[in-house]
């Protein structure tokens, strides 16, 4: 299995948001402006990679050898929650502007299922540590890509007269659906 294939599949063919339905909440919430979506994307890439590494280590060093695989949900979420809170504190101190921009969504990274999802998927797929890192980074990039595209679309839709009933989440979901359709074109370009 080659790393390039992992990257391609994680970013395009099997995009975490558009075909795996993970991380939808921040996707709907933060994709209003291009700038914030990039910021959020960066935060996700960072946290995702960090947590993927740590959870992989914990699983393969602590849980698996002792036959405690069933503890992985609890252990993983504990680690992720701790990590996110650490990142949050550090960011608050060192880069208040970015912190302001991401606002309440940083704590929400904890409950961003993409983070836990990637940690679990890594284990399910049996990746080694290198693959885990690559997969986590690529997934984060895929998340950012999907979010930035949506932010571009939503910035444009802001200037549009549309029915109040669909404005916001509804039209975002439909757009995501059509984007998801378009991303289907990448299916099968690289086979894992």
């Amino acid at each position: 299995m080659n790393l390039l294939a992992i990257i391609f599949v994680a970013i395009l063919a099997n995009n975490i948001v558009l075909s795996q339905f993970l991380g939808i909440c921040p996707y709907l919430g933060v994709s209003k402006r291009i700038e914030t979506s990039i910021g959020m994307g960066m935060a996700v890439i960072f946290v995702m990679t960090l947590s993927a590494i740590v959870t992989w280590l914990i699983y393969n060093i602590l849980l698996a050898p002792f036959g405690l695989a069933y503890l992985r949900t609890i252990a993983f979420i504990l680690v992720i929650a701790g990590l996110v809170q650490l990142v949050e504190m550090i960011l608050k101190k060192t880069n208040p502007t970015l912190f302001q921009a991401l606002g309440i969504y940083l704590p929400l990274i904890t409950t961003n299922c993409a983070i836990l999802g990637v940690a679990v998927l890594n284990i399910d797929a049996g990746y080694n540590i290198i693959e885990t890192i690559i997969y986590a980074i690529s997934t984060g990039i895929g998340f950012t890509l999907a979010m930035v595209i949506m932010a571009g679309i939503r910035e444009r839709l802001e200037l549009v007269n549309m029915s109040g009933f669909v404005r916001g989440a509804a039209v975002t979901l439909v757009s995501a659906g059509i984007l998801s359709l378009a991303f289907m074109g990448f299916k099968g370009i690289v086979t894992l």
């Binding site: 558009l18 669909v166 998801s180």
Partner: peptide, 18 residues
Amino acid sequence: SPPGAFITLGILLGLCNF
């Protein structure tokens, strides 16, 4: 299919708002 999930939910959401 996955795209259908998004589109259906989006339309349903619009209808619900209405």
